[in-house]
């Protein structure tokens, strides 16, 4: 890829003030996304992936209990700073999003064709009829059989996979430069999951959009990603191109995630239950001192890992890692 990245996220932090205490859901997160690239964001549930994507879309609750800081430059414009009307024009236009829950993400009382047409009309200068025509084309494009006849179907007439295709049609309706897909296949069964992944890859080739693909499934990452960002406890803990990351993870957490995935699944097939990394993601209200991963880390050195917080450092020109011991461990 050449030129400046299409999306440049710098020092993004999101903090929720709750009755149980402050929740630093995302801390000082920086990453870039090149044009046409697919960046997979991986991490266990609760690591701050959804909060990150909602922050970029400016869809977090707008109240004083939520604090978002940092920058997110989309082709130079800071998504976190532009006025709301301008952001509204970008949402669903230059940057759009597909959500995890296809069953509930569509309006139950509006036909799916009208929902796609609404997105088209909001961002493109088309009259009603042309927008409807375009919606039918999009539904056909995302592989909905007999799309024209399904325009007037309500969401409950469609299966989960078909609904997710509708969501994708809606997200792609205005040729976004960046698509954020937050676990778009997690709620679907395996064969449908593979179809949706294929669809996304095909559409990406066609439109050249960049994709932030959020998932906790490394099998899916292997399928789709160019580059991987591993998150833990709201922080980036490792960042690397796909192949080097899979063949030589530097951060013990990444290594643990990879070990917990059966080889078969990495080859694209499903296998038995995964032996997870022992322990749980930290409660963000009580982050462990030092390296936030140390309570679960097999390489944890008492007195060192629980004392000083590691910084994200460059391991080579394409990789970053957050671990005090990565050099020793890599040797």
């Amino acid at each position: 890829m050449s030129g400046a990245p299409i999306l440049d996220v710098r020092n993004l932090s999101v903090r929720f003030r709750t009755e149980g205490g402050d929740v630093p859901a995302v801390s000082d997160l920086s990453f870039t996304l090149d044009r046409g690239e697919t960046l997979a964001v991986v991490g266990e549930s609760g690591s701050g992936k959804s909060v990150t994507s909602l922050a970029l879309m400016r869809l977090l609750p707008k109240d004083s209990a939520v604090t978002v800081t940092g920058q997110a430059l989309l082709e130079g414009r800071d998504l976190l700073a532009i006025p709301e009307p301008e952001m509204r024009k970008l949402r669903g236009g230059a940057i759009s999003m597909v959500f995890q829950e296809p069953m509930t993400s569509l309006n139950p009382t509006t036909p799916v064709g009208a929902q796609v047409a609404e997105a088209v009309q909001l961002h493109r200068d088309l009259d009603r009829r042309a927008a409807r025509e375009e919606a039918a084309r999009l539904l056909d494009l995302v592989g909905i059989p007999a799309a024209r006849q399904r325009m007037d179907d309500y969401p409950h007439h469609l299966s989960g996979g078909m609904r997710q295709r509708v969501m994708i049609a809606m997200a792609l309706s205005c040729d976004p430069g960046v698509l954020i897909a937050d676990e778009p296949t997690t709620a679907l069964d395996v064969t449908i999951q593979a179809q949706i992944l294929d669809l996304l890859k095909r559409l990406q080739e066609r439109t050249g959009m960049a994709v932030v693909f959020i998932t906790h499934n490394l099998g899916v990452v292997a399928e789709i990603a160019d580059r991987v960002l591993v998150m833990y406890g709201g922080r980036a803990v490792e960042q690397a191109p796909l192949r080097p990351l899979f063949s030589r993870p530097l951060m013990p957490y990444t290594a643990g995630l990879l070990r917990s995935v059966p080889r078969m699944e990495l080859a694209g097939r499903r296998a038995g239950p995964l032996p997870a990394i022992p322990g749980n993601v930290p409660d963000p209200r009580h982050m462990p001192p030092g390296c936030v991963f140390h309570p679960r880390c097999a390489h944890h050195q008492p007195g060192r890992c629980d004392a000083a917080a590691p910084v994200l450092e460059a391991a080579d020109e394409a990789r970053e890692v957050r671990c005090l011991r990565w050099r020793e461990l890599a040797a």
Partner: peptide, 26 residues
């Protein structure tokens, strides 16, 4: 608080229209 209202926001529907069309009807 439903997901489909968030979807409407994500596709850039103006807030007033979200309330009057998407939310009110449901």
């Amino acid at each position: 608080n439903q997901d489909y209202i968030r979807t409407a926001r994500a596709k850039g529907v103006p807030e007033a229209r979200i309330l009057l069309r998407h939310a009110f009807r449901n």
